[in-house]
Design a protein around this nucleic acid. Sequence first.
DNA 1: CATGAATGAGAGTTCATTCAT
DNA 2: TATGAATGAACTCTCATTCAT
Lengths: 226, 226, 226, 226
Amino acid sequence: MGIHERKERERERRRQQIIVAAKRVFSEKGFNKATMEDIAHEAELSPGTLYLYFKNKDELYASLSLRILHYLLIRLEHLNSNAHSDIESRISGLKEAMYDVYEFDPMILINMFHLQSSDTLKNLTPELLSEIKNLSKRSLSEMAKLFQEGVQQGVFIDKHPMAIADTFWALFSGVILWETSKSIINEDKDYLRETLEIAFEIFDSGIKKHPQKSKTPKKAKTRNRQ
Amino acid sequence: MGIHERKERERERRRQQIIVAAKRVFSEKGFNKATMEDIAHEAELSPGTLYLYFKNKDELYASLSLRILHYLLIRLEHLNSNAHSDIESRISGLKEAMYDVYEFDPMILINMFHLQSSDTLKNLTPELLSEIKNLSKRSLSEMAKLFQEGVQQGVFIDKHPMAIADTFWALFSGVILWETSKSIINEDKDYLRETLEIAFEIFDSGIKKHPQKSKTPKKAKTRNRQ
Amino acid sequence: MGIHERKERERERRRQQIIVAAKRVFSEKGFNKATMEDIAHEAELSPGTLYLYFKNKDELYASLSLRILHYLLIRLEHLNSNAHSDIESRISGLKEAMYDVYEFDPMILINMFHLQSSDTLKNLTPELLSEIKNLSKRSLSEMAKLFQEGVQQGVFIDKHPMAIADTFWALFSGVILWETSKSIINEDKDYLRETLEIAFEIFDSGIKKHPQKSKTPKKAKTRNRQ
Amino acid sequence: MGIHERKERERERRRQQIIVAAKRVFSEKGFNKATMEDIAHEAELSPGTLYLYFKNKDELYASLSLRILHYLLIRLEHLNSNAHSDIESRISGLKEAMYDVYEFDPMILINMFHLQSSDTLKNLTPELLSEIKNLSKRSLSEMAKLFQEGVQQGVFIDKHPMAIADTFWALFSGVILWETSKSIINEDKDYLRETLEIAFEIFDSGIKKHPQKSKTPKKAKTRNRQ
DNA sequence: CATGAATGAGAGTTCATTCAT
DNA sequence: TATGAATGAACTCTCATTCAT
């Protein structure tokens, strides 16, 4: 009993040890140029050992994303479980969660965005792939649930909540990738935080119903043009 | 003189021939698994010849982005040159331009977004890198110019136009990457177009000034600053 | 004393357990692709345990042959111990023994033929190697003994009995290897049995003295020529 | 024209250069322990170059057999083309051919016998595999043709010529493998030649019809069946 | 300018073997 | 004695790049 649990714990610790090393190496050398031997060396293990815990390099690479996806999901679930709070404060909770997800591990988050829409995705074990899919889907659903409430309350624009969630997620990932890209090129000040705030502000305002405007103003304007 | 120009033209034609081949191969095999030999074969040239026109694989890879960046810039400049049109229709022209940029070459556009924030960026010749930087910056500036007008006219929220442009670009790239990612995983219907439309709608509405709502407390704050 | 014997017996039982497992794995995966871990798993033991009973993989591999060599030797000794039977029926007993050796374990027999004239042979412990040598030699000697009788009785051709035994053994192994090879390539009907029978028939007839023929006909011919 | 032929010739020369090196390395290190790098080094080429001429190690390994199979086939065809000679002398020509095949390249011949009935066979390109199959089949057929004549003339026993050919080939390969094996183990005198001669003698005599002997009981039996 | 054969470093991965428990 | 996690050397094979022609 105890012995089995201890083994299990140690196994998990080793996995973490490897993941931590992989993160360091990936950050340092870039995701493509890091070798399994580098990671093994960083983890103070032998190359062969890595394969006892991860099927191959891609799986190790992808596993990095799992933790952050888990974290994201937990935060979002927590957000939805506190059902009492009003929509405004929950949206602001959502944004806070996103900041925290970014802080949780910037490198890995970016890595995860890269992972999406790359060939790597296709080489994963079905299990890992479906775990990633599942976590993503559930996280997006949690977001959608949140937006749905606003839509039902008539506060948000009348769009499919899932589409709003997709937009939100796309905006978040887009800002992070683009600002990271800029700071790599320019190596000067990092505008990530500011841009993210502005982006969220625009998004916030954009999903709200603005009675006399939005579509209506267009008509009004159009009328004016005549 | 004439002879020099002809040479120059032929040289440029060869480059294009290679770029076209590279695009085909990258689209087919995925960007990582395409080999220089594949590309040479597709271009009906020998591998060695590729190196007469591109310093290395990364440069060829990155060069693909240049064409699309050029196209983007031209569209945006054109948009701003027709200075008479009102802000609304110019924003809608901007969106149209983005759709066209996507249609221009989806694979390469995604590739370009990947290129951003990847190691590849660091291995480029300074010339190529600065050309990419330059084109990006100019495109973003063109967008900013457009938003700035709205801000000045008091139609758009009172944010730095460059930040709005960054947000817009981030949203655009984020939606494309995320929807592509979803369609790779699920292989079912592609929601790219729909999500992009909703995203733009939200963005549109979000950058507009909506006097009586939501931001009221912030306005208070703003007022205080004065 | 008793305790020592019991230990010895248990040790031997474990060895057999491993050998049985090894046989199964080798048959299934082919001799090269079977791993020590596969075998350990099949034997429901850990990889490390295998090394308590066999010095290394080659030794385990070679040990499989020992059993079949033992079996062969016993059969041959039995054949020679029943000294009363006539030469014809003993030869037919020999052939029967060979069939049975094949049936005893086809995979291992083929494996054994491969083992001969391979590098593996050189990596064995001197003990194991000499045991194999010894068993082979004794088996061949038993065969030779049998042929010798025929030679002494003037029924068989006047050749060194050991050479006849070598020929017999070579014929036997050659047919098995060649027919196996054919059936691997063609995957159609297996002619092993038929070819083996014909081969034995030819051999039978070939080692008999045929007074007026064989060498004599040549002389006859020669005479005719004169 | 000339340029193409020259290239072709040079390509063939390189192939031979590699094959020669492979032969040397295989002989020295044993077929399993020889590495591609060893072979490349021996051929004074780089490892990568080997893969320009052979798909993989197995194919290189198997290609060694092709030359000897070619040689065998040519010898046998030549034997059958001289149709005038009597059966006796043609059989003796066959034996001579076998000796020469052995002399042609002992190592490779043994290698070829090993190749048969091994997993390697299954990993070859279909082309190479079918070339090997084809050459083997044709060689065996040539032998069969030869035996068939003897059968038709009533000089040889009344068996299917293909079965006789199989037996002959099995005997030949069996003797070589067994005698090689013995000489590896004992490192004393090599009896290959002697055993091969005796084996052929026995085979010769064994396939002849010997009217009044040996088979008489069987004939009796046959008669009884009628 | 174009070729394409040759390069050779280096990658991911496997697996026989060891050894602390 | 048995374990099985860890080892790490060694393997095959790839491919961006070069250079003699």
